[in-house]
Design a protein around this nucleic acid. Structure first.
Lengths: 162, 162
DNA sequence: TTTTATCCGGATATTAAATGTCCGATTAAG
DNA sequence: CTTAATCGGACATTTAATATCCGGATAAAA
C-alpha cells in the first residue's frame, strides 16, 4: 500500500507555486530541476493536478503552472485524489458471495462488516488530509525554516519568472 | 494506493478460523475452496499471518491453520501489517534536500511538514484499524446474518475438520 | 513571419510490485 | 510406507508505477 511519488512531488510543488505573485507561473522544467525529478513524468502529474482544478496552466512562451485557487482552499486530500484517484485502498471483491456457502447477490446490498470497517478507517484518514490545507503547511514550514533558506527560494523563483 | 487482495482474503478467513473449537484446524485447500481463491497464493498469505503470530499452523496429515490468540486480541491493523508490512503509505524521499536550494542533511533531522501531515493522517487510519477487533467484527456479522447462513457455515466447517 | 518556449496528449518503454504456480523438503497420522 | 498437510524457495505471469519520446497546439518575442 504505497502512494505514488507524484503525491510527494506535487505537494512540495504546490508550496512553491504558492510563493508566486499574481500572473506569474513556473514551468515544468524549472520545477523538475528545482526538485531533481524527471521532467517528462512530472509533467504528467501536473496535468493530473490541472484536471482536478488545483493548478492552472498557461501555454506558450513564458507560460507555466500556478495555483488555481487560494492556499486555504487546497487540501492534502485534494492532491491525493487528483494524483491517486478516488478509489478506496481496500478493495472489496465480495468473496462472501463465493464458494459453497456464498451469499446471493440480492442479500449483499449492504457492504460486509469487514469492508465497512475499512471504509470507516479510510474516512478518518481522508478527514485528516482534508483538514490540512496548503495554507497551514506553509505556515508551519515558515515557522521551522530559516530566513536564509526562504530568501534562497525567493531568489530562485524570481530568476525563473523572468 | 491499494491494499493487496491478501488483506481481504485473510480477514475473512480469520472470521472462519474463529468458529473452530480447541484443537481444530482448517487446511489452506479447504479455505481456498470456501472463498474460491487460488490455493497456492493464499498459502503465502497465511504464512505471513503465521509469522506475525496471528495464526498458528499444524503440519502433517490432519493439520491446518487456527487462530493463535483470542478474537479480542486480533485487530484489523494486525492483519494489515502482517500482509502489507509496517511501512507508511506516504514515501518521503526528502526531495527538500535536492536541487539548487536543497537543504543540508544535518538540517533535516525532523521530518518536513508534508511528511508529518501524512504521518498524522496515517496514524488516525491505523488507530481506527487497531480499534477494530475480530471479536467486534464477528459480533456485527452475527447480528446482520441469518440463522440459516450461519448454520450453513457451521455445517461446512464440521465437514472439513473430520 | 520565424523562432522559441511551453503545455497537451498519445504512444511506447522500462521497471517494480502484485499475483499466481510449482516443486521438493518436512512433518505427522494412519 | 503411504497419505495429507505446511514450509520455503524458485519461477512465471500480470498489472501498476515510473519514465521517455514525439507531434501538435499555443503564445510570446525576435
Amino acid at each position: 500500500m504505497q502512494l505514488g511519488k507524484g503525491v510527494e512531488w506535487t505537494t512540495h510543488i504546490c508550496t512553491m507555486l504558492a510563493l508566486l505573485r499574481e500572473g506569474q507561473g513556473l514551468s515544468v522544467d524549472a520545477l523538475a530541476e528545482f526538485f531533481e525529478v524527471p521532467s517528462a513524468y512530472l509533467s504528467k502529474q501536473m496535468q493530473l493536478l490541472r484536471r482536478a482544478g488545483i493548478v492552472e496552466s498557461v501555454r506558450g512562451k513564458g507560460g507555466g503552472y500556478r495555483l488555481a485557487r487560494s492556499v486555504d482552499e487546497i487540501t492534502l486530500l485534494d492532491i491525493v485524489i487528483a494524483i491517486e484517484g478516488p478509489m478506496l485502498a481496500f478493495r472489496c471483491t465480495e468473496i462472501r458471495q463465493n464458494g459453497p456457502c456464498g451469499l446471493k447477490r440480492k442479500d449483499c446490498k449492504r457492504p460486509c462488516e469487514i469492508a465497512s470497517a475499512f471504509a470507516v478507517a479510510e474516512q478518518t484518514y481522508r478527514d485528516a488530509l482534508a483538514a490540512k490545507t496548503l495554507a497551514s503547511i506553509m505556515q508551519e514550514a515558515a515557522a521551522n525554516s530559516t530566513p536564509e533558506h526562504m530568501l534562497d527560494i525567493a531568489n530562485w523563483v524570481s530568476e525563473q519568472v523572468s
